[in-house]
Deep mutational scan, measured.
Amino acid sequence: MSRESDVEAQQSHGSSACSQPHGSVTQSQGSSSQSQGISSSSTSTMPNSSQSSHSSSGTLSSLETVSTQELYSIPEDQEPEDQEPEEPTPAPWARLWALQDGFANLECVNDNYWFGRDKSCEYCFDEPLLKRTDKYRTYSKKHFRIFREVGPKNSYIAYIEDHSGNGTFVNTELVGKGKRRPLNNNSEIALSLSRNKVFVFFDLTVDDQSVYPKALRDEYIMSKTLGSGACGEVKLAFERKTCKKVAIKIISKRKFAIGSAREADPALNVETEIEILKKLNHPCIIKIKNFFDAEDYYIVLELMEGGELFDKVVGNKRLKEATCKLYFYQMLLAVQYLHENGIIHRDLKPENVLLSSQEEDCLIKITDFGHSKILGETSLMRTLCGTPTYLAPEVLVSVGTAGYNRAVDCWSLGVILFICLSGYPPFSEHRTQVSLKDQITSGKYNFIPEVWAEVSEKALDLVKKLLVVDPKARFTTEEALRHPWLQDEDMKRKFQDLLSEENESTALPQVL
């Protein structure tokens, strides 16, 4: 008996699950189920560990084997000379395990699969056993689809999209007709009724959600790893209520002995410091949205989908001078704002400069500016000194954290500008005749005249004003913003236009 009217009423009120309206889709043409990776026989039982391990490696599972009696060998002398080797079968990115008779397991190899009674669906509900069930008529011709799209860092995100009359449910929550939600590992998919569980979705590319604290899981769906560094790992996640993407940084307390840091400095109150950081608001710094204190720290951040500045300059790639100017102007505005709010970044580098898009002209935002507030000064500097390429001379020669101030950030900005303009770092371990530390503390950077011949004198002058060993003589952010190279009204107008595109209400910060 159909429950279409009941569920449609529920759909009209929406769902609290991570779902959002989605535009129309072009329906895929039908194809045989076997060619799409559906096993030839149905099963109602969950797999054992041996079955799972075989399939996850990209080899055929026991459900897909063919009797050897149906095959015969071709003698080598009868092999056609022009026969080309077969292409290897792509490894599946996800697996659906059937929970009921009449449904088959599915190895997801393609990027898009339609499910329903219509014969054009890649996964067609046409098993005779299924057709005899009382629920068969409640399934729509095109009930739902599972697909994946390219996300940040060229990774993939799996989604389920509801197109049914009676509802598609993920972990008992209604997706909603015309809406989608991301699928995470071990999600249970039910059709027409929330208790009519048909599939379990296994994402073969992500970790299980159960490793994360419950308070975090209640608000966010964790997904793929976006990156990792000395101070922690960053994962893509989704807000459950809105389906908006965020980035979540995970900082290990054990790695940084944060408990010991608190004992050594009783004034170090991470929760208080995070609340201060959350109040920071500038178009060129990453917004801190939320914070969870569990076995590790979880910092929920605004997501930038254009990648890191590092990706644009790695491998001796240089940027156009006009692009360097647009990016560097924004970096200076961001660091100036942090300094005005009493925050020294201490870890400025291309990896911590994020881009809003893949376009050459785009907004940038500074991230990882609050680590000293979370990890403690000593722990952070011990970590950073392991990779000193961007560290100021006074940091390398000081004991502990004494003896330096916000000028350290201006040195790091000078190193970043040098790399963007030239395509190579000013200080490098590859210069074996002088140690990296000695290069930095003496201010002897690697200047290649033929490379810098293409760079304007004004740009080079600003680099020199920032890479000054004496912090008292080094340019401040205010002085850098007043430098002739940055007195470019076309560049500032472009920045204002980019801000307006992102948010019509965002105004250009005042600069002296």
Rank of each mutant, 00 (worst) to 15 (best):
S140L: 01
V66I: 14
E87F: 11
N105V: 06
K177E: 06
Q51T: 09
R148K: 14
S15D: 08
Y113F: 12
D118E: 08
S32Q: 07
Q100S: 10
K249S: 00
S155D: 03
F103V: 03
I248R: 02
G229P: 00
S57E: 13
L191D: 03
K245F: 11
N105P: 13
V170S: 14
P47R: 00
Y220Q: 00
E173Y: 15
G14N: 06
Q83N: 04
E87G: 11
V270R: 15
D134K: 07
K197L: 03
L60V: 08
R240L: 04
Q209V: 10
S49C: 11
V246Y: 04
R95Q: 05
Q51A: 06
E173Q: 08
I250G: 11
T26A: 07
S44A: 11
E161L: 14
V200I: 07
P21S: 13
D265P: 13
L183R: 02
V109Q: 14
R95T: 02
T242M: 02
I221N: 00
A9G: 11
N186P: 12
E8A: 12
T138R: 04
L226R: 14
Q34C: 09
P266S: 12
N196H: 03
P21Q: 09
G259A: 09
G232E: 01
S187P: 10
E239V: 08
G151V: 15
E79S: 14
N269D: 08
G165F: 13
P80N: 15
T65D: 14
L63F: 13
K244T: 14
R145P: 04
F201M: 15
N186L: 02
S49A: 09
L268K: 12
K253W: 02
Q29H: 07
S49E: 12
F238W: 04
G178T: 02
F238D: 15
G30T: 05
W114C: 14
K177Y: 15
F256D: 15
D6S: 11
S19Y: 03
E233L: 10
C231D: 07
S228F: 15
S42H: 12
S223G: 14
R148C: 14
S40Q: 05
S16E: 06
T68V: 00
A267Q: 08
F125L: 08
N110F: 14
E4K: 05
E76A: 14
N105C: 02
A9R: 13
S61C: 06
Y139R: 03
R254A: 03
V150E: 15
S33H: 13
N154L: 03
L204V: 15
R117N: 00
I38H: 11
R262F: 13
T225Q: 07
A261K: 03
T133L: 14
R217M: 13
S50K: 08
W93D: 03
I160S: 01
S50F: 15
P75M: 07
E271W: 11
